[in-house]
Design a binder for these strands. Structure first.
Lengths: 348, 348
DNA sequence: ACCCCGATAGAAAGCGCTTTCTGTCACGGA
DNA sequence: TCCGTGACAGAAAGCGCTTTCTATCGGGGT
């Protein structure tokens, strides 16, 4: 069958213990012995049995990265950055590389819990949850319990782009300043002179959706401008496309639309164009996230840039323990307003 | 510490063996006993130790999905579909759900081999490799050996969108008909009257790049039209943006540009616009893949649609064994030409 | 010359589960 | 009444590692 550590030991004429020590490098072994063992490893093409190691050592080198939608570059970029950071961190037990794996929850709370359980079974070294979560109290409680359990078992937990769950779960938390971003964006539109601003929000009940909406409202309130029509929908172009009709029906004199994210904004733009409205001549459009394609949209999208790459990498480092978060609540990641061609002063 | 199977057994007043049998459901257990065990499991919030199970049973429920670039929706869509298919397949040993994990190789052959070794260590149930590979003979040989080793060890291997590696590795192979797609696209441009067609190809040495280029050349040859300038680069918008200058320098009278994929095409469009060239008035542009944003480009991109979702899902089913491939070489996935606004007849 | 010590290496006891091999028991047929 | 026969359940032997605990050996201190 497969080559085991014992085979290597026999071939190198040493005890299994010695082979283990050579491989994990956490114990003095004479250079000559080490050479002999490594030679045997190469000759036999030995690959250690991961489950056996994990069982005996009571830890594994698996790091789980949970994302809401793997097909969305928003998550792809963050997850990729995290995975790189984790890979580079290299050293784990005995310098063994960590296996960063990304799991796609599809935004479903059940699947999220399932994956957490699966990772708990695997005794994962760390778990990173990326992206906003549902705000349903029941789900939050379940998640909170699960995360606490994981932390207890020695699994590091990192939340990236998601607010802390209730209860002290011992998780490291990184949140984007969505409120500030949305506020900046709306202030920009107000400064341009817009007074009738529509809003295509993300799915209701999601933290990210709520925060962005709150920032938007804060800016409006501060300026004494009444809130325009709001429509909720998923984070896809279709949502933006369909929502646009609803928005215009509720206020035909809209001069600007803020979208839940850039993908949605693209849908909004398409719908406006189909109605013969020009951007930003007739209606200004703004997105959120600054995904790679946003600069190539026509006109290029004004948006709020989230440092996805940096945040993902940081989450990765937190997961491997290469970085520690200062105590005292979540670390807030600043966001930045990016002005481009899709917003301008309203006509007249 | 953590709850073990023995704890559950004690609480349910049965032997560990019985608990195991209840959990894996592959042996007759009296209903009353089963109830008692399940109750104890719930009361203690028992989560089985994955490594221990894997060790004892000599298999795990991990399925690895290797992708070249997780931030690219091309891979995100396929990987997401595969993950769903695998999750739905449910039943594994004892109906245990499989953990589909995606690993980002970043297109690096070394990382790819590293991940394969890591998955081999974990005694993964299956491995799916997505996307074109390097054509370097040495790397192919190494990969081939690794895959053969995995297959021997009982891991199912699926190649999705990548040609078979040399040697009989026992892998199930799904390939996109890239040649035919590129041929159709170029034939379309030729039919519109284009005779000077530039080509922004993907990274040299990649199977996908070569196949698309071959299809392009076949069409040109069949029509007796000389090949235009070609530039190679990565699959990102920047590559398309930069390549455009080179293409125009080599042939200022270009009337059409074929891009390696839609993302690159976006970069090409941006560069053309910056030079004051209209699309498709002055230059037609075509992409490849039909990613979600392509329909919202301005003008909307003419492209070759790959059934990414369907192919990913099928790869997932092949990985779980829910579907078998008919013998006789790789299954060829058909592609489809999608005509949109970015291509038109050349001026004059 | 004796002893203690540092540097290595081996023996062996698990890690928590699966699974074969043995029971044990209640029952129906003879 | 006795025994064969299912239907269950327990005992125990690993799965392939890690890691204490223990043994060995060659020196340097006194």
């Amino acid at each position: 069958m497969t080559v085991t550590l014992a085979d290597v030991a026999a071939r190198a004429r040493v005890s299994p213990a010695t082979v283990s020590r050579v491989l994990n490098g956490n114990y003095p072994v004479a250079a000559s012995t080490r050479e002999r063992v490594l030679l045997a490893v190469r000759e036999l093409d030995y690959v250690p049995n991961g489950p056996a190691s994990s069982l005996a050592a009571a830890t594994s080198d698996l790091v789980g990265v949970l994302v809401n939608d793997i097909a969305d570059p928003f998550f792809g970029i963050m997850a990729g950055a995290a995975q790189s950071a984790i890979g580079e961190g290299a050293g784990g037990r005995g310098g063994a590389e960590k296996l960063a794996v990304v799991c796609n929850t599809g935004g479903s709370p059940e699947r999220e819990l399932t994956y957490l359980t699966l990772l708990q079974r695997q005794r994962a070294a760390a778990v990173i949850l990326m992206g906003g979560s549902l705000e349903d109290p029941e789900h939050l409680a379940a998640t909170s319990g699960k995360l606490a359990r994981l932390t207890e078992a020695g699994t590091r937990v990192v939340l990236c782009g998601r607010p802390p769950v209730p209860g002290d779960t011992g998780a490291a938390v990184l949140v984007f300043d969505n409120r500030a971003g949305a506020r900046l964006l709306t202030e920009h539109l107000l400064a341009l002179g817009h007074r009738r601003i529509g809003y295509v929000a993300g799915p209701a009940d999601r933290t990210t959706t709520r925060h962005r909406l709150e920032g938007h409202r804060q800016a409006l309130a501060a300026a004494g401008v009444p809130e325009g029509p709001t429509v909720h929908g998923p984070y896809d172009r279709r949502s933006g496309h369909e929502a646009t009709a609803g928005l215009l029906a509720r206020d035909p004199d809209l001069t600007a639309v803020v979208a839940a994210n850039d993908t949605v904004a693209l849908g909004v733009c398409a719908a406006l164009r189909e109605r013969g409205l020009s951007i930003p001549g007739d209606v200004s459009v703004a997105g959120f996230d600054d995904l790679p394609f946003s600069v190539d949209a026509v006109p290029a999208l004004t948006t709020v840039r989230l440092p996805l790459h940096a945040a993902g990498a940081r989450a990765g480092r937190l997961a491997t323990g290469a970085e520690e978060l200062p105590p005292g609540g979540p670390a807030v990641v600043p966001v930045e307003l990016v002005l481009r061609g899709s917003t301008g002063a309203p006509r007249g």
